[in-house]
Nucleic acid binder design. Sequence first.
DNA 1: GATGAATGAGTCTTCATTCAT
DNA 2: AATGAATGAAGACTCATTCAT
Lengths: 205, 205, 205, 205
Amino acid sequence: MPKISDERRAQRREVILAAARACFERNGLHATKMDDIIRRSGLSAGAVYSYFGTKDELVLAALTSSMAELGIAFAPLFDPAKTLPPLEFVTELTATLRRFTKKDGVDRTRIAMHGWSEQQRNEGIRATMQAIYHGLRGQIQGVAERWRASGIISADAVDGDVASLIFSLVLGFVAQTAILGEVDPARHARALAELIAPKVDPRRP
Amino acid sequence: MPKISDERRAQRREVILAAARACFERNGLHATKMDDIIRRSGLSAGAVYSYFGTKDELVLAALTSSMAELGIAFAPLFDPAKTLPPLEFVTELTATLRRFTKKDGVDRTRIAMHGWSEQQRNEGIRATMQAIYHGLRGQIQGVAERWRASGIISADAVDGDVASLIFSLVLGFVAQTAILGEVDPARHARALAELIAPKVDPRRP
Amino acid sequence: MPKISDERRAQRREVILAAARACFERNGLHATKMDDIIRRSGLSAGAVYSYFGTKDELVLAALTSSMAELGIAFAPLFDPAKTLPPLEFVTELTATLRRFTKKDGVDRTRIAMHGWSEQQRNEGIRATMQAIYHGLRGQIQGVAERWRASGIISADAVDGDVASLIFSLVLGFVAQTAILGEVDPARHARALAELIAPKVDPRRP
Amino acid sequence: MPKISDERRAQRREVILAAARACFERNGLHATKMDDIIRRSGLSAGAVYSYFGTKDELVLAALTSSMAELGIAFAPLFDPAKTLPPLEFVTELTATLRRFTKKDGVDRTRIAMHGWSEQQRNEGIRATMQAIYHGLRGQIQGVAERWRASGIISADAVDGDVASLIFSLVLGFVAQTAILGEVDPARHARALAELIAPKVDPRRP
DNA sequence: GATGAATGAGTCTTCATTCAT
DNA sequence: AATGAATGAAGACTCATTCAT
């Protein structure tokens, strides 16, 4: 076959990546064998290896591509022009996550768990993933700054700490979903509100 | 050779488990080879296999034993006799986690990530782990009930949702620590307070 | 596309052969991949395969072409019209070898080693190479005959044995160069002279 | 199985090495597959790999062990107490080689060719083999020194050159045997004598 | 005629588990 | 009871060759 078009090449790469993501999601990074991905992609071993030189490359690509898509999904929420107030922000964060998670029949929540695990022992994965997660927390910190600037939260609040707290909430939402099953974004946020506003005790007139 | 005493047997079992936990923490569940554990335990392959018939058994035991210890560490916080208010409760939850994590030179935060990942693909692990995590969330729900009963939180609050929210906070704290490094329990809780009580700016009379 | 001219075809063939020789020299016959040769030749896989149907053909061609050139280089030394005496003959043989070895940036000494090795296991290569080496030894034997006929060496000498001895000297010169590095042709021959005429110490009248 | 005795371990190692030598001799270093060696050794893959961690290790061991044996076989010829005169020395060198070559049904002449080839491209092999060959040539140089000291060869002779010449003769003898088949040590040496002593022309009274 | 992407059998090596001693 | 050598079925990856375009 003569030179393949760039478009077609990108397409094929995506097919392989999709196969990899599906396999990784279902069976984890290590238990997934190259052969599983190869068979699911419908290509030959050689073809797959011409796009991704090693299994590790495929793992990294599957993990980062999933995260990249997440970044895009989150983008509107970080728009300085329309900063949401805390409770709505957290609600949108988790609701977006819930929607994003289901794409293409692959549950990215499960992939995330595999990524968090692999990150603990694989230098290359860790560096890349940390950069992405750091960026995400940074974006949240930006939002916190705006809250403080506009008096939505206390002037004494430490942006970094607020970002960290919200980030925990998001990561925890993902983890709890993966471990115990669906968590409702709306109820999650409402519970936060209830925890937040205890002063209104209905029993006290 | 003389029969080994039950005490000695339990002791040996613990040595193997400790070796397994250390290996799993450092290199993940799959990349850890039986030989790594065998060598670290200082026993022979045959000896190790006489305590744990397969690697999977060892994985399950390492994971559940880590969690069991966590349950013990958390116990005082769930004591109905001394129910802490929300912010202090969350602070103690994460602070306890922080202390517990470092035990015996094994970082249980990392083990948790491996467990969450493995849980996604291994039936046996999932069932056991879910039971444990479910129990934990249930305990938190008990605390929420008491808060509501004593008017610390709104009577309209849904205990399950509050428990779920706090559980996310805890899991997220663990995840964020594993992914991006240390998160300070006190600052984490303080940020929650700031997020919670924003409108009342103490500087504006 | 227009039919390619015979001349251009021969030219292309030589380009491929040169690439093959260079690769084989540097990395041996087996460790050299078709892709190495293809890339170095600057042609496409299909193009290379239209000139040489299999890697084995390429190996055979690279080996025989190297030897053929050697035969041409040696030709003048076998000219019955100007038969050199033994010592000068051996000197010229090795000196010619030394000059020939360096051609086109390819060290044929190294290729020779690869050829000698491959010859031990590859029928086709063996047959062809043996014919060439046999021919070479035969030429030397012709020289030996002339030496005997003209009284330069003993009438009792067995031409075949003399040829064999000189052939060993030549092969050994090549091997030693390849294994331990440069061997000086002149000193090599002088040492033969010293070994040959020891008893007559010129300093003792 | 409990700890194997050192003796038995050495024995097994030798079995594997013998299998490797046999395979390498017959089919070369690269065309010999680990599976060939494994099957011929009668052991399992795992067992073989517990003695030699990689194929390269096996190659190096097969090559060096062959050479080591050769060193032992040559030892008596280098004994300063009984230094042979040049012609006899060369005869003994090649005759020893001839005898040594056939040991255990493995033709070390062929292995030598494979070693000379591999040496050209494999750093590790080259270093080890060069050391061995250098040592051998050094021993020959020692003999040359003694010849010169005792007036057997000219006082002007350069020991290194003489050693180099004889070394070529030996390597050439091996190469010629491998390439064209048996070369008779006695006739080889006699031819050297005839080349050496041309002055005695029987036709001139 | 030319291209170079695709094929897939074949390679080396690993590692959970067993069992003879 | 304990040992640790042996097993052998995978698994990741390669590469000579083909053939659709």
